[in-house]
Amino acid sequence: MTVSAPTAGPTVHVAAAGSALPGAPVDNASLAASLGVNEEWIDHFIGTRTRHFARDLATGEVRWSLADLCAEAASQAMECAGTDPADIEFIVLGTATPDHLMPATVNEVADRLGLDQLPTYQLQSGCAGAVQALALAHTFISSGTHRTGLAIGGDVCTKHLDLRRDLSSAAPGDLVNCVLFGDGAGAAVIGADPGERPVVLRRTLNRCTGLGRSPGQIIDWFGLADRHDQRQALTEDYKAIESSVPAMAVEILWELLDELGWSADDLDFLLPPQLSGRMTRLITERLGLPNAREISCVADTGNNGNALPFLQLQQLMKEIAAGQKALAVAVESSKWIKAGFALEGL
């Protein structure tokens, strides 16, 4: 079952959300000067204005780990929800860029939060990992197994990029990765008890649809045997992504609406896929929901992977009112995963 179905168990609430973005925003002028590329190309082709890096752009020094960012986002979410850390019964983290293969980053996050003797789960995935974390949290709460937990998503993408090399003659497919991504984390307190502004997590969707298709994105690990290999750590087929993601987003939208029994006119908010500023605009136009207010952040945060749905959720939580409905769409191009979730204010 890939779409969470109604249950007789507790209603699942999003009590609050939090986020963490490392350092000051890096604008296109600064990034272009550092990489030796054209600022206008970034403005027009990517459409992202700023992004945040866990590494210092000038020195390459790593200043924040993924665990640092996830712990900060989770602490903010708990504080906003008024949730005592002792009440947290589980943690789920979705990421494509863990700090280590072992120990799992989710356990480092638990340690920073002062949490012990609780189940922890780390889901290895790209943009869909955030939705997978919400889906697993939904299952725990709706089944009555737990009452309160943390769903977290985050990525430190710059660990896979050499931001100090001269890219003035790089191929567009290589260059796009250095200007598309950013770093960050987000988190949400998920529980059976409504917060001060009750928001219900009605549905989650997560489905791999890449049978027989080449991956649209690959992130490689390098061990001792292949650390001197000249292949890139991060590669993607941007043309395939640009072609496939808008169509997949439409399919996700209507699948969720059908499962919920909602019409397009019922939606008050749309949280579209956050690939880049330019792609988000194109996808939103393709979805064709003029009455739904768009909640987007990628133009200011860069594509920080699994943090993005939580950053959108945090903004939504400030705006959604009783009786209003919201739908989020996420597409992961690594192996073409459809993902999304639906929320309703009470």
Score class of each variant (00 low, 15 high):
Met78Trp: 08
Ala71Gly: 04
Asn107Pro: 00
Gln312Leu: 14
Ser168Leu: 06
Arg281His: 14
Ala264Gln: 10
Ala307Gly: 13
Asp87Gly: 05
Val200Ala: 09
Val331Asn: 05
Gly216Cys: 05
Leu343His: 03
Gly144Leu: 09
Glu319Pro: 08
Pro10Thr: 12
Ser19Val: 01
Pro194Ile: 11
Ser30Pro: 08
Thr83Trp: 02
Pro272Met: 05
Glu79Pro: 03
Gly36Phe: 05
Trp64Pro: 04
Leu123Ala: 03
Ala328Asp: 02
Lys239Glu: 15
Tyr238Trp: 15
Phe90His: 05
Met102Ser: 13
Ala77Val: 06
Ala137Phe: 02
Trp221Val: 07
His100Ser: 14
Val245Arg: 13
Phe53Cys: 00
Phe341Pro: 01
Ala233Pro: 13
Pro246Trp: 01
Arg286Glu: 10
Leu260Gln: 14
Pro194Asn: 12
Met1Ala: 15
Gly23Phe: 00
Leu118Phe: 13
Pro98Val: 13
Ala321Phe: 05
Leu211Pro: 04
Gly216Gln: 03
Thr148Met: 08
Phe53Gly: 00
Ala73Met: 01
Val37Ala: 03
Leu113Ala: 02
Thr105Tyr: 02
Ala171Gln: 05
Val179His: 01
Ser143Phe: 12
Trp254Met: 12
Arg147Asp: 12
Leu311Gln: 02
Gly154Leu: 07
Ser142Glu: 12
Leu211Ala: 14
Leu118Arg: 13
Phe181Trp: 09
Met248Leu: 10
Glu294Leu: 03
Cys297Glu: 02
Ala15Ser: 13
Thr59Gln: 10
Leu101Phe: 15
Asn306Glu: 08
Ala16Val: 04
Thr209Glu: 08
Asn38Cys: 11
Gly182Ile: 11
Val14Arg: 01
Ala74His: 01
Ile190Met: 06
Leu260Trp: 08
His52Lys: 06
Ala86Gln: 09
Lys318Glu: 15
Ile295Pro: 04
Cys80Pro: 11
Ala32Tyr: 01
Gln76Met: 15
Leu123Ser: 05
Ala54His: 02
Asn38Asp: 14
Thr95Cys: 09
Gly94Pro: 01
Asn107Ile: 06
Pro290Ile: 06
Arg227Met: 14
Ala130Met: 10
Pro194Phe: 08
Lys325Thr: 12
Gly277Ala: 08
Gly9Glu: 14
Met317Arg: 00
Ala330Ser: 15
Arg165Trp: 13
Arg293Asn: 06
Gln315Asp: 14
Ala71His: 00
Ala307Leu: 06
